[in-house]
Design a binder for these strands. Sequence first.
DNA 1: CAGCATCCGGCGGGATACTG
DNA 2: CAGTATCCCGCCGGATGCTG
Lengths: 121, 121
Amino acid sequence: MTGFTRVRSCPPPMDDGGAVRAVLDRIGDKWSLLVVGALREGPLRFGELEKAVTGISQRMLTLTLKHLAEDGLVSRTAYAEVPPRVEYELTGLGRTLMPLVIALAEWALEHSDEINAHRRR
Amino acid sequence: MTGFTRVRSCPPPMDDGGAVRAVLDRIGDKWSLLVVGALREGPLRFGELEKAVTGISQRMLTLTLKHLAEDGLVSRTAYAEVPPRVEYELTGLGRTLMPLVIALAEWALEHSDEINAHRRR
DNA sequence: CAGCATCCGGCGGGATACTG
DNA sequence: CAGTATCCCGCCGGATGCTG
């Protein structure tokens, strides 16, 4: 028998610790990163977000914003006016995520052609 | 009345172009990034991946690998042996994604406490 | 060992209508 | 304008069993 059992790499390759999993379950959904990306230049109102994030439904925008607010990534500010006005803005924590969103967007743009070419076959 | 209508930012905040959307639909699913992360140190066999990516079902591992292979992010190599052996490895394209996966994992580890604290309320 | 086939429950998420 | 409520379909994805 060979003397080694598992030499190739460290047994727990990443472990993920659950932390990565937990975060991916959050921001890895269909809309969260798009909404965060839409808020990169400053606060937006509900209706503006609806237009900024193409294709999102009202329901999903509401839920996504609620989740992001619960996680402390965005803040919600309601102004007592008529008609009512509500603005959403990235928190400090949310802003730390921006470089990753930017990087992901750039990667997507840079390699989407290559991916599509592969998928064609 | 105020003279301005929409000064705040450029009308198409991100546009996403669909490219970002397309990529997120791909690698933004529940398992893809975990599988890619598991392959960061070299090729792994099917069974090794199953253990490396905690919680993934056989079905989902199969499907995820198929998708990643279709997109050209991982390569599949079957050795004509008995018992059969199949190894999965990141392609060049797949490796360009690694820095982002690493960054995401680090962000998750670094801020998971803060997020959980927020969610508690 | 690697992996497809099948069944099926849960929920992600769209459409629509209604409220403050 | 900024949501909430409800209905409902699709498919994600887990469990189990079978093949090369």
